[in-house]
Computed example of a mutant assay.
Amino acid sequence: MLLCIALSACATKLAPPVQESQPQPPKDDNTTAELLTSENFLLNSLLAQKEDWQGVPYRYGGLSTKGVDCSGFVYITFLSQLNMKVPRTTAELLKEGEPVARNQLAVGDLVFFRLARGNRHVGIYLGDEAFLHASVSNGVMQSSLGNPYWRKRYWQARRLVGR
């Protein structure tokens, strides 16, 4: 019994005091400040892409400023802004990352829609109900998930960028 008491006393030995003049790094890599910085970087990158590509016409199979389709725009955006290679097609993008509930969307998540005749559409979530995509009718643009057209066709979301 005395041996157990003696051993437990050793286990609770206090560490030497930390000098106040030297701040210690956070123990958790996922601090709120880091998440906010990461999300701000991601949003700024997406907004830069929007500025560069807004109005580029829709072209099925396209991957340039002469024309781009929705999955091509996602592919180019992730590659050029985040140095991240993602699949080129909507079907393959649907298999990537983790599913995200509609009420848990974060900047950079992919949002998917079911359109007429079995077509699928993909965009990149910007926050505050906004997403960036290559629209068949208007080319690269920002739209709202709250718009009746998109709200009715919303299907699912996936997260490719780690949080």
Rank of each mutant, 00 (worst) to 15 (best):
V122W: 01
G62A: 11
A15E: 12
L7F: 11
C10Y: 13
I76L: 08
Y125L: 01
N103F: 12
A11G: 13
E39G: 04
F112T: 08
A6H: 00
R88Q: 05
Q54T: 11
Y75P: 04
A9Y: 07
S38I: 00
S64W: 12
A33Y: 04
L132F: 11
T90P: 09
L79W: 15
D69F: 08
S8R: 02
K27I: 11
C4Y: 00
L42S: 10
D109T: 07
G72V: 03
Q49T: 08
Q81H: 10
D128E: 15
E92Q: 12
A116C: 01
L3M: 01
L36Q: 15
R114N: 15
L46W: 11
K95E: 12
K95H: 09
L2A: 09
S21R: 09
G97H: 10
L105E: 06
A101W: 03
T31D: 07
G61T: 06
T32H: 13
F112R: 04
L115T: 09
G55D: 02
G127H: 09
K13Q: 15
Q104N: 14
N119M: 11
L2M: 07
E96A: 13
D28L: 12
G55I: 03
L105F: 06
P87W: 05
N119S: 10
L35Q: 07
I5L: 15
L93H: 07
V100A: 08
E129R: 03
T31F: 10
G108Q: 02
E92A: 15
G61E: 03
G67F: 04
K13I: 12
K27E: 14
A15I: 00
N40I: 00
G127R: 02
Q19I: 13
D128N: 12
S80W: 05
L42Q: 13
S135M: 04
Y58H: 06
Q81A: 14
D69M: 03
G127E: 05
V68L: 00
L115I: 11
Y125I: 01
E20Q: 09
P23G: 13
D109G: 07
E51Q: 10
Q19T: 07
S71L: 09
L115M: 15
K50E: 15
A116P: 03
V74N: 01
L82D: 03
E98Y: 11
A134L: 01
G55A: 09
F113N: 11
L7K: 04
T89N: 03
Q54K: 06
K95R: 14
T77F: 14
W53E: 06
E39L: 10
L42P: 02
A15S: 12
V111T: 05
Y125R: 00
R120M: 14
